[in-house]
């Protein structure tokens, strides 16, 4: 029943509560959950501290290599829980950190995933951004280190970037605290569904394999018509990703569909 209600509620939280609990996130006192992803060395933790105002207790998660921190903030009367994921270059490789980040975004379905990006090395950072946009429908790009970019005479047309990526892009200089308010506002708007993301999907044909991908894609979308990005699942299956194989086998993958598509305007 609750699922039906979800489908008709544009402002309801999108996260998968059961999975979040499994991942160890306590959501009792929060309305929305925000995941913070980004390459290492992009000032991710500065952004995190700025958003939480460092007043919040930042408990280290028991991760094997690098801990994940949790914090919270209140914006426009909504209570947000923010989970700092380990800094990674990619979500496709096999390291523990990348698996933690990938599983959280995919199975926890945070209401918003904020991707912190180093403005001085946009191209390299876009690798992670594009990968995140493949697996989530709700994201905000935080274009950090704008002060550094300025020092290096780099100019970024963030409006065009936002249009290309289909998600809000907020320029910030977290070290100075610039742009954090705007970032919070964007997070809020995406959370309550006021801003509808149309995430960019990898457009290029993938060398030598497009036939196989298309074939598999067709079968998957037949079985799970509500899934927004079946091509990505096809790619993961073709790479032999055991987590995804298991999720397809158990049918869990079907429950990860976003409800936005169902909303009738």
């Amino acid at each position: 029943m609750s699922k039906m209600e979800n489908n008709n509620c544009a402002t309801c939280p999108a996260h998968n509560l059961a999975n979040l609990t499994k991942l160890g996130v306590d959501m009792t006192n929060f309305d929305y959950v925000v995941a913070l992803a980004g390459n290492p060395n992009t000032g991710k933790s500065t952004v995190f501290n700025n958003m939480t105002g460092l007043r919040q207790h930042t408990g280290n998660w028991p991760g094997k290599t690098v801990g994940r921190a949790e914090g919270g903030f209140i914006y426009a009367d909504k209570r947000f829980k923010i989970v700092d994921l380990p800094g990674t270059y990619s979500l496709l490789s096999t390291s523990t950190d990348e698996e933690i980040a990938r599983d959280f975004i995919l199975f926890g379905q945070p209401d918003v995933t904020v991707i912190v990006v180093d403005a001085t090395r946009l191209e390299r950072n876009l690798n992670l951004v594009l990968q995140v946009l493949e697996i989530t429908e709700r994201a905000v790009v935080c274009l950090n280190l704008m002060d550094e970019a300025k020092r290096h005479k780099i100019q970024i047309d963030y409006r065009t970037l936002s249009k290309s990526l289909g998600v809000p892009v907020v320029p910030t200089s977290a070290r100075q605290g610039d742009g954090i308010k705007e970032l919070l506002n964007s997070i809020y708007q995406v959370s309550i569904g006021e801003y509808k993301c149309k995430p960019h999907r990898i457009s290029n044909e993938i060398k030598n394999v497009s036939n196989a991908v298309e074939k598999l894609n067709r079968i998957i979308s037949e079985k799970f018509p509500q899934l927004p990005n079946t091509r990505w699942i096809a790619l993961r299956l073709l790479e032999g990703d055991q987590k995804i194989i298991d999720a397809v086998r158990s049918g869990e993958i079907g429950s990860l569909s976003r409800s936005d598509e169902m909303v009738v305007k």
């Binding site: 270059y89 990619s90 496709l92 490789s93 096999t94 390291s95 191209e123 390299r124 690798n127």
Partner: peptide, 11 residues
């Protein structure tokens, strides 16, 4: 393995 993936990650 890891070596190759890291290279790819770096672009």
């Amino acid at each position: 393995g890891q070596q190759r993936r890291r290279m790819l990650d770096f672009g």
